[in-house]
Design a protein around this nucleic acid. Structure first.
Lengths: 330, 330
DNA sequence: TTGTATGCGTTATCAC
DNA sequence: GTGATAACGCATACAA
């Protein structure tokens, strides 16, 4: 590995001049510049990022913390983040936390250690106090999932209202017995808001709250099947399913078919997130499109302002619009 | 941000002692250790990673470069990598390249700049020469996709033999007119080997090579539909489809249904990678399971040896076993 | 236009 | 057991 000093030596200039050539930070004579550039090429010199960052006190790196990249819903948010980041010469690092507190705090050390300039929390297991402490000292922003009580800003969607509006699609045609199906973490804002909307809507419409607040189960197709089997055995008269995720909804439909029910003729199903699963399913699933790409890009723009200590007054709560996508499952 | 010096000052010791306490690198008296630990706590001190890495000349970070995280096939490989990395106190950073040369070389700078200790290339747009140059100077390893002509080691699967074995599943029942369906990059080893296997197998069995070598099209469900429509119009007598990816196979089946054909009664379909799509599809899709998790963990173990300059003789070519998963699409 | 010298925060070597 | 200090590679204020 060659250093700036070796380049300077070979080019017969000072390290300052080499630095100037590299960073285009001041005028240098054409022939000295050439000498330096040749030396750089000859030595195959690459500036050591550690040295640069240590000196500059900034890294040009941001970190995305998410549960795991294999949920397609997150990938468009990641793309939104990347779009803005790259436009601003920032690189994006993605880390899977798998909902593991220890792993999450491990990666958050990269922020505290100044290895990255900021963090986008797409899912977190932190307490309100932990988020606040982080937010007070470092540039962070919450995306999709968030803690309302924390002081940190968030870019998300009004899961409560979105849920209410898709529930209307089930109630309007006259369905009375509507089940709530969730799989994955329960202790996150999206899950809570969805359930709250389900409960409130049912009660307001004098309909039975078929499903009690769900427990934590692993996210996946199989969970959708399992939960559906339970519901069918407890409430054979169930007419419709409000499912909090498209992939789970695939599992619901599969289990319904296994029990001899056709969708939507016998039972109605709606999903959430409008991922590819809603589109692929037979029948295709009525779902709700959240602007996940824009959530990402807006959040990244926000984070950049925080990083740059922009004095502009920034809103804490940022909800993006949603849209019902009607398909063939209702 | 507090520094080691401030801690030293507050604890009335030297920075050397503080460093010793932090890294447990030498004996220190119990009471001085306590003083230091209190000072650290009081100042909320976090070692600056830049300083540490600059000094240590190692970062404890590896980089995964892949096309994009939204292909579920890659996510288990990523998990395999993470498993081994975490066991060895390494952190994993994931970067999406979207097949963009510029973006890829941008992220590779992180390797050249010593910001990460090694790189796992899960998809690359580099030339053989570029890979060799990289491999000569830095710890890298190729995973899944690879360049056979390069000198860099790779962990993958024998796509040629795997393809031949799943093609047998179509030929054995007597299908004659078998189409090859691919979407995504064409200029990658997996695509090339799959097509080569298709062509060779057809010729060996005196069967028609229905599909010419495919062009580059964007990867996705829609591409599967489009390609299938073309094949149906060119070869109405096509009996079976060898599809190079499960998601594409979903598109194929959807388009076949749209044309009034039932799978497997009218046309047979096989996929590749054994992702969740193969399982979700109606009918479920016969596919081929590659040990993608183990590919990741093996590759990471290998990379660690390279990083640690382990003298052990390392194999360049590492193929893992595969397994046909029979379902209802044939 | 170029060079000198300082310091970024840390670890490690050497004394004591 | 502890402290002083050099060195890691770089950017930059200041001097020339």
């Amino acid at each position: 590995m060659s250093t700036i000093e070796q380049v300077a030596l070979l080019a017969k200039v000072s390290v300052a001049t080499v630095s100037r050539v590299i960073n285009n930070t001041a005028k240098v004579n054409e022939d000295t510049r050439l000498r330096v550039e040749n030396a750089i090429k000859k030595l195959n010199y690459q500036p050591n990022a550690m040295g640069v960052m240590l000196r500059r006190e900034t890294t040009g790196l941001v970190l995305i913390l998410l549960h795991s990249v294999d949920n397609p819903f997150f990938s468009s948010t990641v793309q939104g983040i990347e779009r803005i980041a790259h436009e601003n010469n920032y690189n994006v690092l993605i880390c899977n936390t798998y909902g593991d507190r220890e792993r999450e705090s491990h990666y958050l050390k990269m922020l505290k250690n100044h290895l990255v300039d900021g963090v986008l929390l797409l899912s977190n297991t932190l307490t309100v106090e932990e988020i606040n402490e982080l937010d007070a000292q470092y540039p962070i922003v919450q995306v999709i999932e968030y803690s309302e009580e924390s002081k940190a800003a968030y870019f998300s969607v009004d899961f409560y209202e979105a849920s209410r509006s898709i529930l209307k699609e089930l109630i309007l045609p006259g369905h009375k017995n509507i089940a709530f199906v969730h799989a994955g973490s329960v202790d996150i804002i999206s899950a809570n808001e969805k359930y709250r909307a389900y409960r409130d809507t049912m009660i307001e419409n004098d309909l039975p709250v078929l499903t009690p607040r769900p427990q934590d189960v692993v996210f996946g197709f199989a969970s959708g099947k399992q939960v559906t089997a339970e519901i069918l055995s407890n409430h054979p008269d169930v007419e419709a399913f409000f499912v909090t995720s498209d992939l789970i909804a695939c599992g619901v439909i599969d289990e319904l078919n296994a029990h001899g029910y056709q969708v939507p003729q016998d039972k109605a199903v709606v999903g959430f997130d409008n991922t590819i699963f809603a589109y692929l399913s037979h029948p295709s699933i009525t779902s709700i499109e959240l602007n996940s790409f824009q959530m990402g890009s807006d959040a990244m723009s926000f984070l950049l302002k925080k990083i740059r200590h922009c004095k502009e007054e920034l809103k804490k709560k940022n909800f993006l619009p949603y849209e019902i996508i009607k398909r063939n499952s209702i």
